[in-house]
Structures are given as structure tokens and as C-alpha cells.
Amino acid sequence: MNDEKIGVYRINRGKNEIIYQPSGTFVGCPQPIEFIAYGSDGHSYLGNFSQTVLGIQLQNTHDIQGVTQTSQITIISSPNEPGRPLDSNWPIDFISNSQASKQLSATKNGQTVGLYQIDPNTGTVSFAPDKNFIGQPDKVTIRVTSASGEQTNLQYQPTVDAVRPSARIAPTIGEQGQSQTSKVRITSGSDQVMARIDANHPARFIINGQVSNAEKISISGIGSYILEPSTGLVTFSPDFEYFGKPKGINIQVTDDNNTPAIATYNVTVLRHQVAQQPSPAANRGDQGVIEESPAGETVIQQPVSQQQSQPVQQPQTQQQPTPQPTPQQPVQNVAEQVPGADNTELPMLDDTNAWYMIAIALLGALSGEE
């Protein structure tokens, strides 16, 4: 066939057999060969020998972490034809240490990483990886025996890709002394692998790089964190005096493959704002009203009624006795002498009734002249 070597023919004269040994990769029907056989009567006979080489194949598989993979053993009679299912009367076995079995542990570097199984009725080989296994297990050998007793060895090696879930916790901000609450959220790395937080997949604190079963962590001088494992709810209660932004705390969650995802919870504690004292110079509104000054600072206003004022004295209706000057307070101002009067000096008593007393004295002087 196109000068391609596809096998070797041999004749076993003792048994009158023609044997064809195909090349390892050849599948199909080689051209028939002619042969001459001699009968007991001495006559020669011309004959033809033709055969079909059936191919038995098994494809390696590739899937994600935690998902069972299957491959079908098929028979092909020509490279250009699709394979057909293996006949149910063809025995199929795993071969390990010269032992045949329908089930075999998958290993990697001497460690068990999954399980191989064969369905002899369909010729299906399955591989169920351990949930935490990623990569390729060691190859496994499968022996197929045809109806005529011919044996073919196949090798199967699946590949497992990693599935990486992700997790996050929304940061929170609160005032000094105020508790803050957030929740861990997990997202699966594949639709085929569930990711959730429940009693079977609890959320856990990570302390000093290790997963902890503690549900409360207290940090001296900062506060405490409380975690609900079955819901992922986390509460931070700061110490009353603490304010600032402490280092985030890590929480781990897992998907159905027990693959971990870590989220960091960050909190911010705002310092109490000290109220500014009211400024009389800026007060214009009523009591309790908060107004903005041009500089943008918040001030609390006071009512005008609270501002201080000086009382105004009213004039006296009756003549007050004339106070005598004292050595500590000498009289600075005196009334002018009125002609015809007794020239009595009228001292200024104070700023409020001085002119009133002067007027009384003048009237008295005028009355005496009449």
C-alpha cells in the first residue's frame, strides 16, 4: 500500500498456516496476497489471503478538579472510519503487577489520588479523582482480548485541571465604640463545582497562617472579631478608646472540592468629633440652629436674647441730696456763679443727673431776685 510497510507475512509449513503480523500503528485492510498450496494428490492450488486489522483505541481525557472523567474503548477498521463500541464478549481488564481487575486505585508518586473503573458491557473506562487532586495520575494499562483470543494493551492517562474559587468581604466603616458587621462571599471557579458557606463548608479564621476553629478573636488595644462559621457573618467590636484602621484579618472558606479561598476583612474606626465652642462674634441665629460660617466650620449659634446689654437709668423726679466730695474723689467740675446768687457751688454728682441739679439751682436763684 503505497510502498508503506504495514506488516510481515509468515508461513508455518508444519501447520499449513499463514501468519500476518501488522505494524504497530497499522489499521485497515492490506492488499490480499496469493499463495500456492499442494494437495496430497500432488496437485498445486492457487489461493488468496486477505485480512482486516482492527484498531482498538482509547482516548485520554481532560477535565476539571473533582469531576469524574470517562473514555470509551472503540474498534476501528479503517483510519478514516469512526470507531464502533467494543463487543461485549471481548474481556477488558486493568493490568497491574501482572494482576487483572475491573477496578484499580489511581496513584501519583506512590500516593492514591483517585479510582479507575471498567464497565465490561460498554467498554467504558472511568476515572474519579480525589477532590483535592490536580494534575496527571500515573498511566494505567488496560488489556483488551478479542473474540479470537488476541490481546491488545492500551494505556490511559487523564488530566485534572484546578478549579479556584474566590472570596471577598466588603470593608466597613464605623464610629469609635460602634460595632461593624460584614459577610464572607464565595464564588466558584466553575459551574460544575458548587461553592457555598454552610455547616459542611464553614468559614474559619486564619491565625498566624493556620486555620483556626476559634469563633472569636480578641486583639489587645484594638477590639474583638466574632465569626459565625455556618453563615460567614463577621462582627468587629472595637475597644471604646480605639480609633484608626487595624491590620485586616483573614477568613477562609472552601468549595465542594475543599479548595480554599481566603478573604481579608478590613475595618475603619472613625474618631469621635469634638464639638466646637460657640463663638459670640459669629452668632446670628436662634438657639439650637446650626449654621455654616464662611470658612466652612460648623458652629452652634446662640439667640440674641442671651447677649449682654447695659441698663439705661431714668432721671429722678425728686431732688437728690448733694453728695460731698471725698478725698479719694475730688470734685472736678463746678457750676458757674450766677449774678445775685449766694455763689454757692453746685458740684457735679455724676454724669446722669448733673444737668438736672444745675437747672434746679438756677431756678432757685431766679426766684430770689423777684
Rank of each mutant, 00 (worst) to 15 (best):
R84P: 09
A341K: 02
Y225G: 03
D130K: 15
I222Y: 02
I206F: 02
R284G: 10
I290M: 12
I33C: 01
A282S: 14
S126K: 14
Y265A: 01
Q178R: 09
V331Y: 03
D286P: 15
V269W: 01
Q310R: 11
I222S: 06
V299K: 13
D87T: 03
G244P: 05
F236Q: 06
C29V: 15
R168S: 15
I6N: 00
V193C: 03
R284Y: 11
A199H: 08
P315I: 00
I36F: 10
Q320M: 13
L58E: 01
N213K: 11
S179L: 06
I36E: 10
V53Q: 01
T181L: 12
F133P: 07
R168P: 11
I197Y: 08
P278H: 07
P91F: 07
G28W: 03
D41G: 13
A147H: 13
A147W: 11
N250K: 15
L46G: 05
E215A: 04
A37D: 11
R284V: 13
S23N: 04
L362R: 09
G340M: 00
V53I: 10
K139H: 08
R185H: 15
M357I: 10
V160K: 07
N333I: 15
Q302M: 12
D351S: 12
P202I: 04
S166E: 07
A341S: 15
N208T: 09
R13L: 12
S101C: 13
A359L: 09
A100W: 08
I169D: 07
P315T: 06
R185K: 15
D3N: 00
A261N: 01
E81I: 12
I92M: 13
K216L: 05
Y116N: 09
N200C: 05
F205V: 00
E291M: 10
Q192I: 07
V211I: 11
I360N: 01
Q310G: 10
V163Y: 06
G14C: 08
D255G: 03
G209S: 00
I217K: 05
V67Q: 01
G221P: 01
A147T: 10
S126V: 14
P202T: 05
